[in-house]
Write a protein that binds this DNA or RNA. Sequence first.
RNA 1: GGCGCAUUCGUCUAGGGGUCCAGGACGCCGGCCUCUCACGCCGGUAACACGGGUUCGAAUCCCGUAUGCGCUACCA
Length: 491
Amino acid sequence: MIPFSPMSTHIQGPVRVRFAPSPTGFLHVGGARTAIYNDLLRQSVGGAFILRIEDTDKERSNEAMTRQIQSALAWIGTVWDEGPFLQSERLERHRERAAELLANGRAYRCFCTAEELEGRRKAAEAAGSAFLYPRTCLARPQEELDALLAAGAPFVVRLRMPDDHVRFDDIVRGAMDFPPEALDDFILLRSDGSPTYHMSVVVDDIDMGITHVIRGEDHLSNTPKHVPLFRALGGTVPTFAHLPLILGPDKKRLSKRYGATSVEEFRNEGILPQALYNFLALLGWNPGDDREVMTREEMIAAFTVERLNDSAAVFDREKLWWMNGQYILRLSLQELWPHLEPFVEQAGLAGEDRERLQAALELHRTRATTLKELVELVQPYFRSELTYDPAACAKFLKDASLPDLLDTLRARFNALPAFTKEALEAALRALSEEKGAKAGVLIHPTRMALSASTGGPPLFDLIEVMGREATDRHMGRFLAFLREGGKPAEG
RNA sequence: GGCGCAUUCGUCUAGGGGUCCAGGACGCCGGCCUCUCACGCCGGUAACACGGGUUCGAAUCCCGUAUGCGCUACCA
């Protein structure tokens, strides 16, 4: 028993953590989640969160993407203390450290060409065994090496891996143990002298004093390479936490084919940053009790790495939408407004009366799960005409006396000295009573007239916010529509 | 192929030997509220991958199988 006491993984802090995305596209939700856990750890125990952009692959990186990633990180609410540092600006440093390894014998030059190695690799694969660099150049006589170097033959620099097992503790995986047969002398510097990813990360992590590396599980297999490199460079090996991946509904790595995967896309769909942060944090972590809708502060207070999950999670869009709806419900309109504004603008409502717009939004907030939907719902208040669906109006079209009745109601509404919901309701109920009908007979067609919908907020709230002018106009148009037998709206 | 990691309701998860014929949430279904829709509330549906151990007792520990995923580059 007691293979690992939980206390052994508990982090006291202060820590120095980092998020190191490569700017090859928009910030993926998986990356965002990694950033969130770094943020939560940093905020909960103190220390520093460093942002480092791994832009050494020039082909796939560009400055716009770097800015994009920063703005997405800031938008969801992560806070970094240092950076962004660009890895591309540290290439000299990486080379310098590789030269040291070469000088002290922890690394060596390899003159084998990529082509000949590729051939061996294929052969090994065909034979069903793993390919490891056979240390040809480590075994070469010194004179031969000197001659090759003097002749200007291209070479790569390889790390001389230790002969014993590589072991490390992973916070989420437990004890890791890799036998020497599983590891080979990997490349530190390419033949053009540029550092590989492995070289760059380790040097940067050492130089930046990183104490805890929280990253995706796709790096778990790279870690046994990194650990000996940390040691060879005289650095302290950080503590690792490898997070499980986020999957799509097909249980494969989350991909485009099932819709949005980047933070930016969710933002454009009308997801609130608080909701996305909350949702992502819960995809692989939980506070240990039943809380789900939590503020960042509450999550920081509850965060511990021991509660990080070790199995992959399917990204459930439906639940994100639900959670976003919860935030739309719980936030004040004032808090919501800055996030709503871009959608208001997009919907062409930016110039409308602010007070009326906000009153309408307030009326509909329980009925929307995204900001985009919410703004959509409020359109009828500002449109000069609505399009009625004959199918949805079939019931009203059958009642021949309805148009006149609605006309009367419209007149009574117009005659009201104060256009308040109390007065409106009294007027409508009085009329239905006079006609010996139930209030619903008037309520439902009126709702349809004003909103072109069978659902929505309580009718009298709706009319009050709609206002005298728009109410009269919509009712007039609806009457015409009914009298024309439900002809699909004119122009 | 090799190496590594994972496996509780459809999905996110609680659970670290008995208190679990497995708890919460999303979804779905039913009901209440009600002028409609939504919110809210109440109730229901549904899971320990499989096979062996260990143990008085296993969702929990061990081994195997299956499945999924990751890595396997002079990409990051």
